[in-house]
Computed example of a mutant assay.
Amino acid sequence: MIRYTSPTAHYAFHTYDQSDVRGGPVTPADVLMVNLLSLRFDWRDVTPLFVVGETPHVQLRQALDEALTEARALPALEDCTEEQAAMPALREANSLALAVPRSPRRDRRTWGPVAVSKVLHRLAPTVPLIDSYVCAFFATRSPRDIRLRMRAELIANQRWMTELAQRHRVRGEPMPLTRVADIAIWMDAQTS
């Protein structure tokens, strides 16, 4: 954790985590922030979200805004009930992300639950980050199952994680435990 949050380290903490967050809907800059967490979005992935129309991209952006509103109304994941952690608007955003057509210039899907989580987490930390390391740690690729399993882990390990969160602050506040968990899982995988 110390290495990841060091101001001299080349990790995303001082860019993705510390950049200002404003209220309101998802912006193009919010979407591009996922590049700091190893995704490779460019203008062709972002611009279609913000046009006028009823395209899969526009439907995804609208779902991202609804999921963001839902997540911002919830307490921290460790304080959510299981019903709250289900996050139906987030489930819909994940479904619509998978419906966005693959780009012909890519060998894999651009949009999916990983991208959705990386866009929304910075704006609403109740949404945990999902990546291959988190999926492996929780032994599932289901975003709902990851949220429920992470919630259980945060509750079980809240004491020591809260101490870490206090020492590694984000925009002046203790780091969200969902981010503490993500960094701990990622850093452990890097040293294994």
Rank of each mutant, 00 (worst) to 15 (best):
H57Y: 06
L39K: 14
E54K: 11
R72S: 08
I146H: 09
E153C: 09
E78T: 10
P88D: 13
V127E: 09
L68V: 07
M87W: 09
V116E: 09
D107Q: 07
M87S: 05
A136W: 02
A136T: 11
A139G: 06
A29H: 11
Y11A: 12
Y4V: 05
Y4P: 05
I155K: 15
A184W: 01
P104Q: 02
P113K: 12
T15N: 05
R105C: 01
T8P: 00
P88R: 09
Q59T: 04
V114M: 15
V114R: 07
R91I: 03
L49I: 10
L123I: 09
E70N: 09
F13K: 04
T15D: 13
A86Q: 15
S132I: 07
V58L: 01
R151G: 12
L96C: 09
D65K: 04
D182P: 05
Q190L: 14
D131I: 11
R167F: 02
P28S: 13
D145S: 10
V180F: 10
P176S: 07
L123R: 15
H121C: 12
T15S: 08
Q166P: 00
L129W: 13
V119L: 02
P56G: 03
A76D: 15
P128Q: 08
I2C: 03
F138M: 04
S6W: 10
T5Q: 06
E54W: 03
R72P: 09
A165Y: 05
S19C: 03
V134M: 08
R22C: 05
Q190E: 15
I130A: 07
L98T: 12
Q59D: 07
V31Y: 02
M33A: 15
S117H: 10
P174L: 06
T69M: 04
